[in-house]
Design a protein around this nucleic acid. Sequence first.
DNA 1: ACAATCTACTGTATCTGTTCACTTACCAAT
DNA 2: ATTGGTAAGTGAACAGATACAGTAGATTGT
Lengths: 340, 340
Amino acid sequence: MAVTIKDVAKAAGVAPSTVSRVIADNPRISLETKKRVRKSMKELGYHPNVNARNLAIRSTQAIGVVMPSSADKALQNPFFPEILRGIGSFAHETEYSLYVSTGGTEEELFEEVKRMVQGNRVDGIILLYSRVGDAVMNFLLDTKFPFVVVGKPYDQENEITYVDNDNFKASKELTNHLIELGHQHIAFIGGSTDLVVTVDRLQGYESAIKESGFPSPEEYKVQAEFLKSGGRKAVERLFSLEAPPTGLVIADDLMSLGVINMLEEMGLSVPEDVSITSFNNVYLSEITRPPLTTVDIQIYTLGVQAARCLIEKARNKEEPAKRIIVPYTIQYRQSTKRID
Amino acid sequence: MAVTIKDVAKAAGVAPSTVSRVIADNPRISLETKKRVRKSMKELGYHPNVNARNLAIRSTQAIGVVMPSSADKALQNPFFPEILRGIGSFAHETEYSLYVSTGGTEEELFEEVKRMVQGNRVDGIILLYSRVGDAVMNFLLDTKFPFVVVGKPYDQENEITYVDNDNFKASKELTNHLIELGHQHIAFIGGSTDLVVTVDRLQGYESAIKESGFPSPEEYKVQAEFLKSGGRKAVERLFSLEAPPTGLVIADDLMSLGVINMLEEMGLSVPEDVSITSFNNVYLSEITRPPLTTVDIQIYTLGVQAARCLIEKARNKEEPAKRIIVPYTIQYRQSTKRID
DNA sequence: ACAATCTACTGTATCTGTTCACTTACCAAT
DNA sequence: ATTGGTAAGTGAACAGATACAGTAGATTGT
């Protein structure tokens, strides 16, 4: 059996409560006693039992991280380990632990969240996605459990703390970049329109196109379910239009890779025939051919900020809802080309 | 304050211990009482407090997952979310939760592991890497804490439970495949030689080459620190040899992408000039150009098995050390070509 | 008819910390 | 000498579950 606070107390010749106070560095205990107790702790190799502590103080010093359900391959996106790294970094500093949930299906995910919340396993939750009418989010709202969203919530924007980029602006800037390069036929390829991030990026694109006065038929707005067979068809259709696009705004680096691949198969090359821009700036976009012009959304920072907000919220339930917009930068690389 | 077992007991007119037995579905409680208690639980919206439960039964129903320290970009490897998905899946089935640690530096990582172990936060730990003389592993061995390793431990192989592929054999098969395609100059590019997996794959390659009688000068064994500037130099050097290789065995899909990229810059194309084979079969290797011939190491299964072993070990400390070798398959795609 | 046995519970200690209310001990002030 | 104030601790009551020993009441055996 492990060493308990009582063993330490006995060894140091004090009461357990005194030991507890020494751990908390309570000023009511004299330095001398503290030293003696600390010495005993070291000698016995004592480490407080987190469960007992959590039971007593009714907090867990742990935060839950909820990834999207992974029916598709979306989880293989390097976005996730990277944001986890950001969250983990802040959590480590503040001595919080990380609980993650990688539900297979939506129901499994929901069950896990319920386990986390109702079982008092975590003090708060970070949602790594924002989807229209998400059950998990509604549940958290209903139970008034502290949580923050990475991405913009679909509604009740003012009641929910979230960390996001200005995806609208970034997307607009990206589109305008293509326009400046002389492109007049620019299409948008995004993932599921249930995801708020897709919608924001689509709207930024639309706004830029509208201001430019260039055409943007409905066929230019493609929703590719993360490159499944259906996605392939969508891209083929896009490029068999009468006026196929010469520039693309794609909602995710990983999708870009898939699209480039398809284009090459169709005999089109990037950037010679088609210019490509996308989002996230994962490590890959640097080492792929051609290196991608992409929005660096600062994934790591998103994670750090999300963790910070959550911990603030968990410590103080009255903390008002906040919005944090992490600035982006555009990495200009070789996937785009000027045309006449 | 949340509803406790006592509230339920009072509402149902029984003792708290009876409620506890109802939760555990103990046969000593009559069906009638069970029904009544369950009804009260539902009415009050009762959910057992995990902390109190864990304290009483001295177990946490949680497992710790330790990722490698992420000073480099290695964490952006889709290997990690994928194996997490496998672990998570089994954990969910068995109602375990997942604690993850993504230490920034080695020391931070070590601290987090200590927090997990000494604070009784988890019942066991899965190490997602195996490195020569790793401090974390030694610590776990010393404290006799249940853990399993994904990958082969460097030493004390018989005392440690681990889940791995037969990397030696896979690497040999990959190399032989290149030989069958007519390649006589085959080089190996691996990551840090501290990682046991690199060593195994290198040795498989060496074994095949040796049997074939083809040359394998020391310069053919390249250690590229995950594609940093140093890695680039190594590749350049490799291809400015008098007899540059025509085939490559690369220890990781992500590295392959980097290498292909460098080769193209040097005016060499894949598979026309150089055939490439690698490991992991992450989703990317399917959508890159050319699609990679790669060993499908079944990352998801590795995760599931690791979780299974760990939970067995955590439940029964006497469980003997096990070794589980997950079978691999080779995905033949278009990154290799027959030469004369 | 009375002990033995079984069923279906209850009471209480236990797990390890935290915390509040309380006690000493000691010095200064009145 | 008594009171007041403060520093430094102590004791016991929690926190919310589990587990073991114990018990009331019904049933069985002879």
